[in-house]
């Protein structure tokens, strides 16, 4: 209920793009390799999915006309996103990571990554 409300009220778009890398090596095949899109628009990050796993990818999409970044508090990622640009990161370790836009630190979110 609250998830749906939050998603619609912020005009968020979190899309499961699908399974990636069909040709991934056998060792990595055991890992989750889903790609999720987190869209930035109107000065807000979209809501990341609640269930993430090591090996998943986050594709950040900047739909704004401003330069933004997706910057982890623990420095595990720092992606600069020019207007209308996109960039992908791989989640390499479990845990909860807070992130902000380093240009507009009021823009924030959190990734919860399970093993």
């Amino acid at each position: 209920m609250s998830g749906a409300r939050s998603a619609s009220s912020h005009g968020l778009m979190v899309t499961l793009v699908g399974l990636a890398l069909a040709a991934a090596p056998a060792a990595a095949a055991a890992l989750s390799t889903k790609v999720y899109t987190v869209t930035i628009q109107q000065m807000s990050f979209g809501q990341p999915p609640k269930t993430l796993h090591v090996g998943d990818r986050i594709e950040w999409v900047n739909n704004d006309i401003f330069v933004h970044s997706a910057t982890a508090a623990d420095k595990s990622f720092d992606v600069e996103l020019k207007p209308k640009a996109r960039a992908t990161i791989v989640l390499r370790k479990p845990g909860t990571v807070s992130f902000i836009c380093r240009y507009h630190p009021g823009m924030k979110g959190q990734l919860v990554v399970a093993k």
């Binding site: 109107q42 807000s44 630190p105």
Partner: peptide
């Protein structure tokens, strides 16, 4: 959108 942006600037 401008108001959201400028509020960030003010902060």
């Amino acid at each position: 959108t401008g108001l959201k942006l400028f509020t960030e600037h003010q902060l």
